[in-house]
Nucleic acid binder design. Structure first.
Length: 448
RNA sequence: GGAGAGUUGGCCGAGUGGUUGAAGGCGGCUGCCUGCUAAGCAGUUAUACGGUGAUAUAGCCGUAUCGAGGGUUCGAAUCCCUCACUCUCCGCCA
């Protein structure tokens, strides 16, 4: 959410900035400015009327005390007419305020000047680390490896829940757990993050704070608690969203709070499952583990001084990259163009890992600086000195990393000629029983 | 799930219709005094929005906020209704 005062004072800059994300946003700013003037005019009038009422009420109290009943009654009837006017104005003012709020919540963040302008496809590669692995024999893709080595069961997932909800099986499940451990350990022990264990369902105020609501409600799974769920007002009892990323609960950890002289940056790490509706995304990218309705992820969040946001983005991105380096995977970092960023982001780096079986780069992390746009929405503030004015910090988030696509890269990169997977050294201590993934032994549970 | 209690300013804690944004205490800040590892005295101490101002994150004025929303009233922290949350006991359970 943007600062109203800023929009008022620098409408041209705001308009131009948001136009790089879509023309409709520039128009919304115009509408905002229009409403804002009228809303303030009404508020001033309302304040005056209320002031009038307040002083009249005090007078009445005084008159009553002195026993001057007739005069008091006279004042009362006058105040009633003032009240009628207040009521009428309040209704108008309320509607304008609601519309203004709606517009503000519907405006994306300002893109950082350093990023490329344009739609999806205009991204720029920043760097490439490692050599995309090539094989002297036909490399298998992860689907085939999962099938042959009994690592993931897609049919069972469909049977249990539906497509996009695979079951990780045997060593596939263990490998995933090992990766979670590896990543968590590195972020907590080496990168200095504080680990949080957070709720996986959140009430609506939380995704409003991070920016998924109100615009992107249909991309989250919605959970209703009791039978009143279909009431027309939509307020029929508690309802929650399944988190699409741990960013939602972690960022909301400090919602509505004022941090007293925090030592920035604050760094949080949280592992969680994530649920995404991904409606209409059935296509070639939806095969196997590439795009799921439920997946797991280790998430990083940083809260920092507003002066420091861009530098923190470099650091948090490097923290995510470190995982890929430790695993010996080839990756590239790209900076997203204005038209392709998440709603709340000012600058986003995507990390793409090389998946040799598919001969493709797959996004395993997205690191974003949401500046004060997100802290404003979530109303997270801090004071840099005692008694100082509360300020909005900058917020950052990065996947560090997403499990399914990381699994794809690990399996495809470390496969050998006979179709086994020889896991890299760093994973050995997390799965000492199986440093080489091989086809199941006789007697293992069937994967059907 | 059942029964009960509660939700007031940074904290503790008064306050059942009228200058209560809110007593008192603690903590914080400022000044005075004292000269000693302290105490005393006085003052001050919320957030948001709007207006004014200068354009500065000063000052001044106003409005709103005593868990949230609605109602009664000229006027509500105080009365009524709905909801949320917290705590205690019981039940249930991983």
């Amino acid at each position: 959410m943007h600062d109203r005062k800023y929009l008022r004072e620098c409408p041209e800059i705001a308009r131009q900035s948001l136009a790089t994300r879509g023309e409709e946003f520039a128009r919304k700013i115009d509408r905002f400015l229009e409403i804002d003037v009228e809303r303030r005019r009404q508020q001033t009038e309302l304040d005056e009327l209320r002031s009038e009422r307040n002083s009249a009420s005090k007078e009445i109290g005084q008159l009553m005390k002195e026993g001057r009943k007739a005069e008091a009654e006279d004042r009362k009837s006058y105040t009633r007419t003032v009240n009628a006017r207040i009521e009428q104005l309040e209704a108008q003012h309320g509607m304008l305020a609601d519309e203004e709020e709606e517009i503000l919540l519907g405006l994306p963040n300002f893109p950082d000047p350093s990023i490329p302008v344009g739609p999806e496809g205009n991204q720029v590669e920043i760097k490439l680390v490692g050599e995309p692995k090539q094989f002297s024999y036909p490399a298998r893709d992860h689907m085939e490896l999962c099938q042959n080595l009994h690592l993931a069961n897609f049919e069972a997932g469909s049977r249990i829940t539906g497509s996009g909800f695979p079951v990780m099986h045997g060593n596939g499940a263990v490998l995933q757990r090992a990766l979670i451990m590896l990543m968590s350990d590195i972020h907590v022990l080496r990168h200095g993050y504080t680990e949080l264990r957070v709720p996986f369902m959140v009430h609506p105020r939380s995704p409003l704070g991070t920016g998924q609501l109100p615009k992107f409600g249909s991309e989250m799974y919605h959970v209703y608690v009791d039978k009143k769920l279909n009431e027309e007002d939509g307020e029929g009892g508690p309802h929650y969203y399944l988190i699409p990323t741990a960013e939602v609960p972690v960022v909301n950890y400090y919602r509505e709070q004022i941090l007293e002289q925090p030592s920035f940056p604050i760094k949080f790490m949280a592992y969680s499952p994530c649920w995404r509706v991904e409606a209409g995304s059935y296509g070639k990218d939806a095969k196997g583990l590439t795009r799921l309705h439920q997946f797991e992820k280790v998430e990083l969040v940083r809260i920092c001084d507003p002066e420091d946001g861009l530098k923190q983005l470099e650091e948090i991105t490097a923290d995510a990259e470190h995982i890929l380096e430790v695993l010996g995977l080839a990756y590239r970092r790209i900076v997203l163009p204005s038209g392709d960023m998440a709603f709340g982001s000012a600058k986003t780096y995507d990390l793409e890992v090389w998946c040799p079986g598919e001969q493709a780069w797959r996004e395993v992390s997205s690191a974003s600086l949401t500046t004060d746009w997100q802290s404003r929405r979530a109303n997270i503030r801090y004071r840099s000195e005692p008694g100082g004015k509360p300020l909005f910090p900058h917020m950052l988030n990065a996947s560090g990393l997403a499990l399914p696509r990381l699994m794809i890269a690990v399996l495809e990169t470390y496969q050998n000629e006979v179709g086994n997977v020889v896991l890299p050294e760093v994973l050995h201590k997390y799965m000492p029983h199986a440093s080489i993934l091989t086809p199941p032994e006789a007697g293992a549970p069937p994967m059907i």
